[in-house]
């Protein structure tokens, strides 16, 4: 089966996010108000797996070994089967 995983990598709460802070400031220059702006990265991964559980296990391992740095990041994974 083929699955598509969307992985979102975010800085942990409390970590400085200078890019988010800069965007927030730019929004304020345009007259918008925002209490906070945080950035994140999204990876879309298409993979083969026997079922959705093993697909999740696989992507989980990819996050832990490479895509996220557990010292500074949280990550979330959403998975769906594709044609």
């Amino acid at each position: 089966m083929q699955y598509q995983a969307e992985v979102i990598i975010e800085l942990k709460a409390g970590m400085l996010d200078p890019e988010g802070t800069t965007v927030k400031r730019a929004l304020e220059h345009l007259g918008y108000e925002a209490d906070s702006v945080r950035t994140a990265k999204k990876y879309t991964i298409v993979l083969q797996a026997s079922d959705i559980h093993s697909a999740r296990e696989n992507v989980e391992e990819m996050c832990q070994k490479l895509i996220a740095n557990p010292i500074i990041h949280n990550y979330s994974i959403s998975l769906r089967e594709i044609e």
Binding site: L11, M15, L16, P18, E19, T22, N69, I71, I72
Partner: peptide, 10 residues
């Protein structure tokens, strides 16, 4: 130990 992240003034 630790990590290196974006400068506080980016």
């Amino acid at each position: 130990a630790g990590a290196l992240t974006t400068n506080s003034y980016p």
